Computed example of a mutant assay.
Amino acid sequence: MRYDGPSPDRRTRAMVTTGGLVVAAVLAAGVALLPRSVPLADASTPTRSPVGTSPTAHAPAAGPVPSPTPSRIPVAPPAPDDLPVVTYRPAPDGFPADPDPLDTAPLTQGLRPLRRITAHTAPGGRPLAFLTPQISGYDLVVPITARRAGWVAVLLPSANRRIAWVPPGGWHTVALPDQLVVERRTHRLTWLRHGRPVRSWSVSLGMPGQVTPLGRTFVLARTPPAEATFGGVDVLALGAVPEDPAALPARLRGAHIGIHSWYHDRELGRDTTNGCVRLTPSAQQRLVDALPHGTGVVVVDRLPASR
């Protein structure tokens, strides 16, 4: 189902705090390593935790890669060795816009890199960056949005409403049974499994000037909360970044958007966060326990009444 609301056309990105992950809602960002606890945009005081061991990947088992007809597969141009790697830092410029950013159809398969693979502008198009098996120590799974001539389009991490095209080889597919749909006007988050609603909760969203970005994104990682204000429940860091990083407090510039709980529930149904999606600790725990890396998330203004 496609949502017929206003289509966002602005791409914004966030800077990354050196040495750790930060989330305008969630994850902190390092290039290779990342703290097990991370400061979030709604945090009362910035804190850092020492680097620890990488958590167990929260992703489903890999599946076989489809085998398209070789003669119809566009050849991937050679990639220079000095191409940038997609990390928690803002993704490189030049990737195409998501053609259906407000489409609420579930994205049921994800791509999991097995080695360093190239990300292109189109099937057979120019390579702009590498995708690697992990970002900051967390296993990477990106939702597949389209298939064409043996190539697949995926949602680009660390960017808003951007896709990348990936040639065959060097990755597996994984099943993505779940989806989260966030409605900004009604302040509702709905969890679906296999396209059927499981639960729906009232949420707090981004305040004016620091709005929760519209469009399709995904669960990038699960990380422990940085401090007690997050209600003691792990945070789900998303692939999306704040629309206007300059509008954030200085210590939060470098953040990703995330989903997390809070130490009180008095602001549910209001626009009070720095762009995050905030819900009750019990609801957050259910999502943390159920959702694998790569789970699709789509933020719309409001769903059609027929849904």
Rank of each mutant, 00 (worst) to 15 (best):
F218G: 05
V233L: 05
P245M: 07
L236V: 09
A221H: 00
V219S: 05
G215V: 10
A247V: 01
T223E: 06
S202L: 14
Q210V: 08
D234R: 02
F230Y: 15
T217R: 04
G231H: 12
V219R: 06
L192G: 01
D244N: 13
P224C: 08
R216F: 09
P208T: 09
R199T: 14
V241W: 00
E227K: 09
S202V: 11
S200K: 04
H194V: 03
Q210Y: 12
L220V: 11
W201Q: 10
P225V: 02
E227A: 14
T217N: 10
G209H: 05
T212I: 14
R216Q: 15
L236K: 04
R196N: 08
L205S: 01
Q210I: 09
H194R: 12
S200Q: 12
A221D: 09
A228N: 07
S200M: 10
Q210N: 15
A228W: 13
F218K: 06
T217F: 08
V203Q: 01
A246M: 06
E227R: 10
A221V: 09
L236W: 02
P245N: 13
Q210P: 00
G232F: 10
R216M: 13
Q210M: 15
R196F: 08
R193M: 05
E227W: 11
D234P: 07
P224R: 10
W201I: 09
F218Q: 08
T229K: 14
W201N: 06
D234W: 06
E243F: 00
P225N: 02
L220E: 15
D244H: 12
V235E: 03
P245H: 06
G195D: 14
M207I: 14
T223S: 07
L236F: 07
G239Q: 00
P197D: 05
T229G: 13
V241C: 05
A247H: 06
E243C: 05
P242F: 01
G195M: 07
T217G: 14
V211A: 13
V198M: 10
A226S: 11
A237L: 06
S202Q: 10
P213H: 04
L214E: 06
G206C: 09
V219G: 03
A246C: 00
G232R: 04
A237G: 15
D244R: 15
V235C: 11
E227V: 08
V241T: 15
V235S: 03
E227G: 14
V203Y: 00
L214V: 09
G195E: 09
L205Q: 03
H194Y: 09
A240I: 03
W191H: 13
L205Y: 04
L192N: 10
L214F: 13
P208D: 06
T229R: 15
P224L: 13
R196I: 12
V198H: 07
L220I: 12
L238F: 02
G206W: 02
V219W: 01
V219E: 11
A240Q: 00
W201R: 09
G231D: 08
G206H: 04
S204E: 12
L236Q: 05
R199V: 08
W191I: 01
V233P: 00
F230S: 13
A247C: 01
G206Q: 05
S200G: 11
S200L: 04
P213N: 07
